[in-house]
Design a protein around this nucleic acid. Structure first.
Lengths: 340, 340
DNA sequence: CCTGGAAACGTAACCGATAACGATTGCAGT
DNA sequence: ACTGCAATCGTTATCGGTTACGTTTCCAGG
């Protein structure tokens, strides 16, 4: 076993091989202008010392690093699914991935968070970045693709067809016979939250059901934010017979609150979510939800970013993916006395 | 909106503030020796330009970066769960996390993969690293914690009590009345794979059932590796009445193969996995498995690494976490003709 | 007025690597 | 032998930031 606790640098290799660091660099990067004999010497020295080039140092000087970045502020199921898609798209592409996640998991959602980390990475380390559910429009030297962008965003982005998804979800409830349908909205800076609320309103309008503003709770996609809202809605004497939550995380909290209040699902209350995170399939009853394939979101975002970096992208900058309704046990027709 | 497409560097700030970069650096890092007036000037310039220090550049010169690394070769449910635990442990700790994942998701599992990336990161970027299911013992200048380490590893690590877990799982099958129990092993360089096989043998021994080597298939934890093995086991005339797979990913593939061969689970075949990944709860039937709380694995690893970096760790270097059997629908007593 | 010393700040080396450029060498052609 | 070109390789500037060290400024004390 070689004692290798000290970091081995390029100059160490150069010294052992009896050449300059420039030559070592050329060998490492396979550049032109080194004789076979020298290459062999350098290779031997590299082997001997167990040298690996420093990503940091090379990225400082180089423009291309073949590393893409992903910035996420939380790390729940949503992000995890996205990540699987990203990894799939990047597999065997020559691009590595660096995910930057900060330690302020809870609270302190400061507006500038992503921008700060994006800047710190994209300066040199990464060739481009994916930002998941950002808090603002990003500025960067290198390409940035937003997954679920902010409202009014004009940059590259990938998102689900939230309007259609939400409309379908609420239509499903209407078809079952529900008329008083509560809604728990998401963080309103995101285009998705906005569209899902639009879908809610559109579906009601389409069915000739007036929108009751008091049935709308203002959440922020953070599951916890749904708890007081759900409680408020469900403790009303004229509680809704169904609730549509703008995300599965929040919908699952609605289920919890319902249980806590002694309401049976779907007997006393139907619940619909949005996202189709894995957990939604394994609750009892299963959560009816709108599938937006977070995997696909990640896959497409990575595919786009890859091409943007290499300058080969020729499709529209904003991708919208289809959604589909997944009906599980959390929705049913309202009991006759609820219908009134 | 400021036109800020060009990267803003420290010297830009210095120029605007009319000071040297050294002074800017002192202000940014809150070091001693700058007058209040100058600090204000520099702060103003920073605001004006929207400057953010480059993580790369500063990490090159500095020793501490307050960034921890995580290296993973694949990105399936297992890793995702681990990650949630890591993030939780790091939340509000002052440490950020960088996850490095390479693009060679499938195949090309070269032995030196992690070592290479570990070296590239730990040279300067990170203060320490977590390596998930490594392929070898890691050498590094900074602390490394292995999750599910290689066999014989002496470095810091976190793992489940694989021996007890596997023993319990097989005992469960024995209790149900199974005698011919197949086993699909994991990658044998990992301590976990070894221990799970040990548990399998121990449970059979304990019940006085001889170990039939032909009932043992050699997988590598990669789900796909289980397919031909399961097929071979289940197409034998004297096929086992139950199969214990060393991971859920492989167990789920066994379920698929069983379906493909027209075998009912648990009617014709009982299946037990190991890990308890989220998907195992939502298959039909649900997979009986050994829960090893990957979340906890990640949490403990991050906690240990954090302390190792700050030099405050005083507990044993190797953490073993308890497991528990989760019985779902994929296991049942064998039918009488299977028992023979 | 002079001196000492601390505070404030700039200069330059440095971290590890890359790349433009220039210098050297080798070899073929005359 | 001499020129010319290409192959080979070292020197040096550079990336963006940090820090050791040296210099200047300023004020209190003698």
């Amino acid at each position: 076993m070689i004692e290798a606790n000290a970091p081995v640098t390029m100059s160490d290799v150069a010294r052992i091989a009896g050449v300059s660091t420039a030559t070592v660099s050329r060998v490492v990067n396979g550049h032109y202008g080194v004789s076979a004999r020298t290459i062999a010497q350098v290779r031997t020295a590299i082997q001997e010392l167990g040298y690996e080039s420093s990503l940091v140092a090379s990225s400082l000087r180089r423009s291309r690093t073949n590393v893409l970045g992903l910035v996420a502020h939380s790390f729940q199921s949503y992000t995890a699914e996205v990540l699987k898609g990203v990894m799939k798209a990047l597999s065997r592409s020559g691009f590595d991935l660096i995910i930057y996640a900060n330690s302020d998991l809870y609270g302190s959602y400061s507006e500038g968070w992503e921008q700060r980390h994006l800047t710190r990475l994209s300066g040199t380390l990464t060739d481009g970045c994916i930002v998941v559910t950002p808090w603002g429009e990003m500025r960067s030297r290198t390409p940035v693709v937003a997954i679920d962008p902010v409202r009014g965003s004009t940059g590259p982005s990938v998102m689900a067809d939230n309007l259609a998804g939400a409309t379908t979800a609420v239509a499903h409830l209407l078809d079952l016979g529900h008329r008083r349908i509560g809604f728990i909205a998401g963080r309103d800076s995101l285009a998705s939250a906005w569209s899902r609320e639009e879908g809610y309103r559109a579906a009601l309008d389409g069915a000739g059901v007036p929108v009751d503003p008091t049935l709308i709770g203002r959440g922020d996609f953070n599951p916890e934010s749904a708890v007081p809202l759900a409680r408020a809605l469900l403790q009303r004497p004229d509680r809704p017979s169904a609730i549509f939550a703008a995300s599965d995380g929040m919908a699952l909290k609605v289920l919890e609150v319902a249980r806590e209040l002694g309401l049976a699902v779907p007997g006393d209350l139907s619940v619909v979510g949005f996202d189709n995170i894995p957990e939604s399939a394994s609750t009892e009853p299963g959560l009816t939800t709108v599938d937006q394939s977070m995997y696909q979101l990640g896959y497409e975002a990575a595919r786009m970013l890859k091409s943007l970096v290499t300058g080969e992208w020729d499709e529209p900058n904003q991708i919208v993916l289809p959604t589909s309704l997944v009906v599980r046990g959390s929705t049913a027709a309202p009991t006759s006395d609820q219908r009134r």
